[in-house]
Amino acid sequence: MVDLVQLIISGTATGAIYALCALGFTLLWQASGTINFAQGEFVMVPAFLMLFFINTAGLPMWVAFLLTCLVAMVLLGYTFKRAMVDPLIRHGVIPLVIATLGLSIGVKQLVKAGVTAQAQPFNSIFPDGLLSLGALKVSYMDVGTLVLAGLIVISLQTFLNRTVTGRAMQAVAQNTDSARVLGINVARMVLYTFLINAVLSVVAALLVTPTYLAKFDMGESIGLKAFYAAIIGGFNQTRGALLGGVLVGVLENLTGAYISPAYKEGVALMLFLVVIIFKPEGLLGKTEERKV
């Protein structure tokens, strides 16, 4: 029983990281109809940026983190939107999807060829060791991850629901035309979404890289999990991404422990396929009307 609870807690922590990526993924989809297949690379690049700032530039962790957020907002937020999404979205979803696939391969190989093909260690911001709560032992890393990811999610939800800008962003996501008629600056709101996605990716990188190690192909796995999470929860629901992320994380842990480590991914994958086939709008999603 204690084992089960521990597995669920650590699974939730991993799932929280997936949820951060999935959240960015669904936000991009809602605001601009972008399916970003390079989402995993959006986590890999900040991991290497942070390593660069820490190891080569010798900066402290928190400065490196803030600088990386800044660079990511410019590169993965603004530039990504202006150089790829804006010119391509007019052609429809498919060319953009193909272009993000190209971006994914390009960035991955660029890091492999130009930086390193080896996995780089990355220190966790949380101390090692276990926190004992009675019989229950939880690592500080899991607790820290849960708290930090939770804070990010709560502040993001508060921003989206309580501020004028946040509500304007939601309006854009729900109906671009009406939003424009109401005098909302649609282009700016969409840009904000891209910036938020960039920052979420940096946070995910900060949390996941200590376990995954910084490697050119680390994004493949995390991108895939974020993708499962987004679809399982519901592509057009921010809450869905959270549920999906946690579900994927917990299922992975339980499958690894009780069924077979080789099929760690298997159950989440099956859930993903079942959801696509029987409830394509996702567990929490609403049936999507065609976006005009």
Binding site: I98, A99, L101, G102, L103, I105, G106, Q109, L110, G114
Partner: peptide, 9 residues
């Protein structure tokens, strides 16, 4: 492959 990826974009 790096060049290929960006060329696709």
């Amino acid at each position: 492959l790096a060049i290929f990826g960006f060329a696709v974009i």
